[in-house]
Design a protein around this nucleic acid. Structure first.
Length: 442
RNA sequence: GGGUAGGUUGAGCAGGUGGUGAGCUCCGCUGACUGUAGAUCAGCCGUCUUUGACUGUGGGGGUUCGAUUCCCUUCCUGCCCA
């Protein structure tokens, strides 16, 4: 009993922000380079040890240190500037210490550009019955072999420092799925705050940034309260958590607005965790978000759905079997430049691995190009004017189903999804790679 | 030619020895997926006026109140023997 008291006292002391040591300078820099006068949207440049990320941008998710079915070369061609990996999964397998011994995540995965690791908070909560949360942390059973593990904020930071991404994320407690009681949301939020302080106290790597997570569910007051608290802490970036669940778009928008409202004047990068449809991203960008991640475009691709300009199509549908044209005439991805819908439809029917890969490449490129179009509009000051076109071009969930006779974008060259993105160097990057490859052969 | 085992809804099967065979797996059709236990899951998959009804066990005939079941005949398939 006495031990329990002293333990809780110890945790309380660790969670006290007033005793946080001054945080040494990090290698991260973020600057806003353009703003939209008609909204909170902004473009920025995020400089990290492994490179520069032009924002707003979407991070493809590579849970097991791989974006499923893709190679780093594919990701470069897609225009990915930064990818996400997962602390929980890599801790369980192959083990963070092994990755550290092998030179860290970037070397391990042969990915030269920036990386971010999720803290594992979301995974642990998603384990449901396999998990129990206490003040110290979350005790859970591995989904792989049932073995028991304890994740604490300190442990999560330790693992992420071993993995070595450019950006680590504080261990948080998202609201349990299905729990909408304000009392539960409040408790999870407050615990996330205490864990945020402990995460900061545990973090020491100077070449790694640490982002804190603002929670608060869909309650605007709690969102604002959480954002204000996380803002008061010396994180290098601020995440918006708990907003990729089953809330309505209106609830989500209100939650984002409440969070961003409490961050007004803050100069740090803002990262909305878990959203991945083009429309969702556009709406969040308009409200002031800089970074995103989601499994959606890649998972949806593996399950047969392609996102195209102005719509989406399920390649498993019989209607695509005789279509000789590419997924999207306006798309510059390596899939659209080479393969017909008929071939992709065949690959999915035959359950050939190439199908999963080709559609993943396309969807990620579609989203990357979409974000690039938003950045261009922001820099040229034309976002407001281009908004209708961007909304119409979005693709993904909620957009029309396209098939025979429903061609995406009849005038792609003049549209928002124009495939030349010289300013961001996306296509130049592709060409450069090809040139390099050519040189290598000669 | 003789013998034998079979013919069930696109395919492959299960079941059923006189009292309502629409059950499974593929294939096929469609949908879902948002900080990845999911290259996964869910629904549909004979017809229709679809919370229910009807039809359907190779074809034809017979016995019976009633046949997928018993009898006759015929067609088809596999195997064995000549």
């Amino acid at each position: 009993m006495e031990w329990e008291l002293s333990e809780s006292a110890r945790l309380a002391a660790l969670s006290d922000p007033s005793t946080l040591p001054v945080r040494a300078a990090r290698s991260l820099r973020f600057s806003v380079t353009a703003t939209d006068p008609t909204s909170n949207a902004r473009a920025g440049t995020l400089t990290l040890p492994h490179g520069v990320v032009e924002t707003p941008d979407f991070m493809p998710v590579g849970t097991n240190a791989t974006v499923k079915s893709l190679d780093p070369e594919d990701l470069h061609a897609i225009g990915a500037q930064i990818i996400l990996a997962n602390t929980y999964h890599l801790y369980l397998r192959p083990g963070h210490e092994r990755i550290q011994r092998l030179g860290g995540l970037n070397k391990f995965a042969a990915w030269s550009k920036p990386m971010l690791t999720d803290s594992g908070g979301f995974q642990v909560v998603s384990l449901g019955p396999l998990m129990r949360i206490r003040e110290a942390g979350a005790r859970f059973h591995s989904h792989l072999d049932g073995s028991e593990h304890l994740f604490t904020p300190e442990r999560s930071v330790e693992i992420q420092e071993a993995l070595g991404p450019d950006i680590a994320v504080a261990f948080d407690q998202p609201v349990m799925p299905g729990s909408t009681e304000r009392r539960d949301v409040l408790r999870a939020m407050q615990r996330t705050h205490r864990w945020a302080v402990r995460s900061l106290r545990a973090h020491s790597r100077g070449d790694q940034a640490l982002f804190g997570i603002a929670q608060g569910g869909i309650d605007p007051e709690l969102r604002a309260e959480s954002a204000a608290y996380i803002r008061s802490l010396p994180f290098e970036g601020i995440n918006l958590g708990g907003l990729a669940g089953d809330e309505t778009p209106e609830e989500r928008n209100a939650a984002v607005e409440a969070t961003i409202g409490a961050l007004d004047g803050d100069r740090r990068v803002r990262y909305l965790m878990g959203l991945g449809s083009p429309v969702d991203l556009l709406e969040a960008v308009l409200r002031g978000v800089d970074l995103f991640d989601s499994v959606l475009p890649a998972r949806v691709a593996r399950n047969g759905q392609a996102w195209v300009t102005g719509g989406r199509m399920n390649l498993r549908n019989a209607r695509h079997l005789d279509e000789d044209q590419p997924l999207d005439a306006a798309c510059d991805c390596t899939t659209c430049r080479r393969f017909s819908r008929a071939y992709l439809a065949h690959l999915f029917r035959a359950e050939e691995l190439l199908g999963y890969r080709l559609l993943t490449i396309h969807n990620l490129r579609h989203l990357s190009a979409f974000m690039c179009a938003i950045r261009l509009a922001l820099r040229s000051g034309t976002l407001a004017a281009e908004l209708p076109r961007l909304r119409a071009a979005a693709g993904g969930p909620g957009t029309p189903r396209l098939g025979v006779g429903d061609e995406p974008s009849e005038e792609p060259a003049r549209g928002a999804m124009r495939p030349r993105y010289a300013e961001d160097g996306r296509l130049r990057g592709v060409n450069r790679q090809r040139a390099t490859a050519r040189e290598g052969r000669e």
